[in-house]
């Protein structure tokens, strides 16, 4: 497995109705690595991710996959190369894990084509990779939040795409499950070379797990590069309006951001966080 697919945005402008969300954005996703997109609420992170997987048509500019505009590609062909796990996917009532993961095979099936051994193998591989094999017969709505998230990732894996986009894959999970999901994604990246792009809220986990960090502010890229380059005190102030200290994480060497509020710290914040 080599990372051969390139994903980039060129002069991308996105809008919902009259409201511009992203304006003239250029972004190159490094192939075979983990990219995390961070930014304040409503800065356009999810919108950018939706557009890169062509759920939202650009007002101007293009999203290019291997040099081709994704919005012009046949839907199923794109779905065999690029997968997306949205922020809140819906599990139909009573659906079992095996059934849900099997839905990931949709781009490989036509109206009349039958299930093949290959489809079963893809589902099995996805279950194994996410350690959900023993849950196969369980109903998805009976699972814990962490298990459910692994099952959704398994569905995206069954799609067997070289690129995987995830919109806040760790929301609603406790810290142990957040780390578990991010470890799983790192495994995928390291063993299969899957290019991963994810929107994350937790800056410190993003800095630790991402090879490439993109900080978004007001529909523009404020900074992009390695976590050490991007996650600085100036960047946190500019992107989140928050005073902070950034130190080296003693366990990983990645930058670690410590927020300074108005209380409980020796040198309180000069500016208060945005309301």
């Amino acid at each position: 497995m080599t990372a051969t697919h390139s994903l980039a945005a060129e002069e991308l402008t996105l809008a919902y109705g009259e409201r511009l969300v992203i304006e003239g954005l250029d972004l190159v996703v490094p192939a075979g690595s983990i990219t995390a997109i961070v930014g304040a609420n409503a800065c356009g992170k999810s919108t950018l991710l939706r557009s890169m997987s062509r759920l939202l048509s650009p007002r101007a500019g293009r999203v290019l996959l291997d040099g081709k505009a994704v919005h012009r590609m046949p839907a199923k062909e794109l779905a065999r190369t690029l997968g997306l796990l949205p922020q809140s996917p819906i599990a139909p009532e009573g659906i079992t894990v095996a059934d849900l993961v099997g839905r990931g095979r949709h781009p490989y099936q036509g109206v009349f084509s039958r299930w093949s051994r290959e489809d079963d193998a893809a589902v099995a591989a996805a279950l194994e990779a996410t350690q959900t094999t023993t849950l196969a017969d369980r109903a998805v709505d009976e699972l814990s939040g962490g298990q459910r998230q692994r099952v959704w990732i398994a569905m995206a894996l069954a799609q067997q795409t070289d690129l995987l986009l995830l919109d806040e894959p760790t929301t609603f999970l406790d810290v142990a499950h957040q780390v578990e999901v991010l470890d799983l994604l790192t495994d995928l990246n390291r063993t299969r070379g899957t290019t991963i792009v994810m929107v994350l809220h937790d800056l410190n986990l993003a800095a630790r797990y991402a090879d490439h960090l993109v900080a978004l502010a007001a529909g523009q890229i404020h900074a992009a590069g390695t976590p050490a380059q991007v996650l600085t005190e100036d960047c946190v102030r500019a992107v989140f309006g928050l005073d902070s200290r950034v130190i080296e994480d003693p366990t990983s060497g990645a930058p670690l951001m410590l927020p300074l509020g108005r209380h409980h710290v020796d040198t309180p914040a000069e500016v208060s966080p945005r309301g």
Binding site: A75, P86, P89, I90, A91, H106
Partner: peptide, 16 residues
Amino acid sequence: SALQLGDDTAAALGVR
């Protein structure tokens, strides 16, 4: 059946 998973998930699975 794919639409049952939500519009975004269905679209990501290649459904128009």
